[in-house]
Simulated assay, not measured.
Amino acid sequence: MIFYIYILFSESSGIYYVGYTTDVSRRFLQHNEFSETSFTSKHRPWKLMAAFEVPGNESDAMKIERFIKKQKSSKFIRKIIDANTELTGVLAQLVRVPIVRD
């Protein structure tokens, strides 16, 4: 099974959200459309800013997601999103997935 790290941005709140999944399109729709009360439901609409394939298993995806979230830095996340940034260290294994933006 292939896992992905994805990064969303809420223009209305000015915040980023990082998650992992096996289906980026499905998760993106869930964040924007499901009526349940959750963190992401309070900051809609979300824009998909980046997605990365994670070589390995779910545990690897969870570790990378946790690493990014622990940085607690919008500047760090913007750097990851930038296609010109060479990912190093823990993030070097990620493979950028082309996404279609609106």
Rank of each mutant, 00 (worst) to 15 (best):
N57A: 09
E36N: 09
I68G: 00
P98S: 12
T21H: 04
F34I: 07
V95S: 08
L87K: 04
G89S: 15
M49W: 02
T22R: 04
I77K: 00
S13L: 14
K70E: 07
V90I: 15
R26I: 10
Y4S: 09
L8R: 01
I5V: 08
E65R: 14
Y6N: 00
I81G: 12
G14A: 08
K79D: 06
T40L: 12
F34W: 05
W46F: 01
E86L: 07
M62D: 03
T40E: 11
I77R: 01
G14M: 12
I15E: 04
S59M: 11
S35A: 10
K75H: 04
N84T: 12
T22H: 03
F3R: 08
V18H: 01
V24Q: 04
I5A: 00
M49E: 08
I68R: 00
Y20V: 00
V95F: 03
Y6E: 01
D82M: 13
Q71K: 03
T88E: 14
F76K: 00
K63T: 06
L48P: 03
L94C: 09
Y4A: 05
N84D: 13
E33Q: 14
V90N: 15
N32D: 12
M1P: 02
S41I: 07
F34L: 11
I64C: 01
R26M: 14
R27W: 03
S10V: 14
R26D: 13
N32P: 09
R96E: 08
E86Q: 07
S74L: 00
Y4L: 05
G56L: 06
E58G: 10
R26T: 11
F34E: 09
K79V: 00
I68D: 01
T37C: 10
P45T: 06
P45F: 05
D60I: 12
M49I: 01
L94A: 03
Y16I: 04
G89E: 08
E65G: 09
R101F: 05
S10Q: 10
H31M: 09
A50S: 12
Q71L: 02
S25M: 15
D102V: 05
K47Y: 13
K79E: 06
G56Q: 15
F39K: 15
K79Q: 06
P45H: 03
Y20S: 09
S41T: 13
F3L: 11
R78I: 04
I7G: 02
F39S: 12
D23M: 12
F67C: 00
S35W: 03
F9I: 07
E86P: 04
K72T: 05
E33V: 13
Q30C: 04
T85R: 09
E11M: 15
T88K: 15
F52V: 03
W46S: 01
T21A: 07
I64K: 00
A61S: 05
E53F: 11
D23A: 06
A50Y: 02
S74Q: 15
I99M: 09
